[in-house]
């Protein structure tokens, strides 16, 4: 089926890609899969596993790494996310006009609209649950935020004519980002360490109210990621479809 030029381009590309992936494979086979690289004394993971629950008060060790041990790193990641979303918004507005009128496409069916309206509150509630329990069970601010964004996406599909408010999205995003930095500054003011968990002994490990400032930071991240991703999807959709 493929014409000759496609095959002529495909074969050398296939050879190059197999070469690159094969070299990487030979390198990684030496590392070994499933072998114990964690328990040696000088592995950083050993320290996180040994002291993670007592030092941060979080049952989920991934949360303790993301929010506490590498919280500053997470602040940087959230900044990158913000910059990328801002870049999308700026570039969408700078696109040259193509002058074509796009068709609106078929309207969503009754089942899509009504079923979506039933499902959206449940999905949003689940997202909130996921980032509220980030320190206890799998999940956290990033996962809960993107689950909320999928609920928003479902809303955009079910009601294509609905008006969405840019102002509300950017307001909640900015407030969440500011509260993340504010929680970091509390640590700086109390103990001299940015993002320090100043009330870490608060609550009993494994209960909802525990982990000190970790749940608060994850709630801020969840709201920020949720509104960021919703704004991204909304900008990508534009007013066209």
């Amino acid at each position: 089926m493929m014409e000759r030029s496609t095959i002529q381009r495909s074969l050398p590309a296939l050879a190059i890609s197999i070469l690159i992936a094969g070299t990487l494979f030979l390198a990684f086979v030496e590392i070994g899969f499933g072998e114990n690289k964690v328990d040696s004394e000088d592995a950083v993971a050993n320290r996180y596993i040994a002291n993670g629950t007592t030092e941060t008060g979080s049952s989920n060790l991934v949360t303790s790494v993301v929010v506490n041990y590498r919280g500053f790193d997470t602040l940087g990641e959230v900044t990158v996310l913000f910059l990328a979303a801002t870049g999308v918004g700026a570039m969408i507005n700078l696109l040259p006009e193509d002058g074509k009128k796009r068709s609106k496409g078929p309207k969503p069916s009754l089942i899509m609209t009504q079923g979506g309206m039933l499902a959206i509150p449940v999905i949003a509630l689940f997202g909130t649950y996921v980032f509220l329990h980030g320190h206890l069970s799998p999940g956290g601010g990033f996962q809960g935020g993107v689950i909320i964004a999928t609920a928003f996406l479902l809303y955009l599909i079910a009601k294509p004519d609905a008006k969405t408010s840019h102002r509300t999205l950017s307001l909640s995003e900015s407030l969440a980002g500011l509260s993340f930095i504010g929680i970091g500054l509390i640590g700086l003011a109390v103990s001299g360490i940015f993002l320090d968990n100043v009330i870490e002994g608060f609550g009993v490990l494994g209960e909802l109210v525990s982990g000190g400032l970790l749940p608060l930071i994850y709630i801020a991240i969840g709201i920020k990621v949720g509104s960021e991703m919703s704004g991204l999807v909304e900008k990508m959709r534009g007013d066209a479809s």
Partner: peptide, 14 residues
Amino acid sequence: PDVAMAEASIGSAL
């Protein structure tokens, strides 16, 4: 499981 939740909703929906 944490990574799986993020990948499922980002990769397959968004």
